[in-house]
């Protein structure tokens, strides 16, 4: 059985927050939902996101932001309560070029929530997670700032 988010209210508020951040809104990230504790995000292909004008392939930086954001949401699926988190490091393996014109999806999971650090892994794909175009691992600092991420001090 797939475990449910530790605190659905945290996941709901933080996923909404993370995709609404100015940079994520600029890129057009959409939160599609969370399967158990594995959130899925989507970004549509558009000309402004291209990195190689010779072939129309999306810039690697879009993959980086997508992995970072989806992984951060995966961490919040494991959090018992609101807290501020920040990416400590991130590694992306570009397994094959994204196909121009096609939407990219990212699914992430937080496979270890330690006292101070959260560990995540993510895949980006077009059709199925089993056919990834990129793989990302990241670590996040927990309680990285006393300033809550959500207005009003909820986070």
């Amino acid at each position: 059985m797939t475990p449910a988010p530790v605190n659905p209210a945290v996941l709901e508020a933080m996923s909404a927050l993370f995709v609404s951040l100015p940079h994520c809104e600029t890129l057009g990230f959409q939160y599609l939902g969370t399967d158990g504790r594995k959130p899925v995000l989507k970004v549509e292909w558009r000309e402004a996101l291209v990195g190689n004008p010779g072939n129309g392939v999306v810039h690697g930086g879009i993959i980086t932001s997508l992995v970072d954001t989806t992984s951060a949401i995966a961490v919040t699926a494991q959090l018992p309560d609101f807290e501020t988190i920040a990416t400590l490091d991130l590694r992306i393996d570009y397994l094959k070029a994204a196909t121009p014109g096609r939407a990219i999806f990212c699914r992430a999971e937080c496979y270890r929530l330690a006292t101070q650090i959260a560990f995540t892994r993510a895949v980006c794909y077009h059709d199925r997670p089993e056919e990834p175009i990129a793989h990302g691992v990241a670590t996040f600092m927990r309680e990285s700032s006393p300033i809550p991420m959500l207005e009003g001090g909820a986070a």
């Binding site: 100015p22 940079h23 980086t64 970072d68 992306i92 300033i147």
Partner: peptide
């Protein structure tokens, strides 16, 4: 921006 409360640049943006 990736954290509107600090505020801070988005980590993914820095990567890009």
């Amino acid at each position: 921006v990736g954290n509107t409360r600090l505020p801070a640049l988005h980590g993914g943006l820095i990567g890009g």
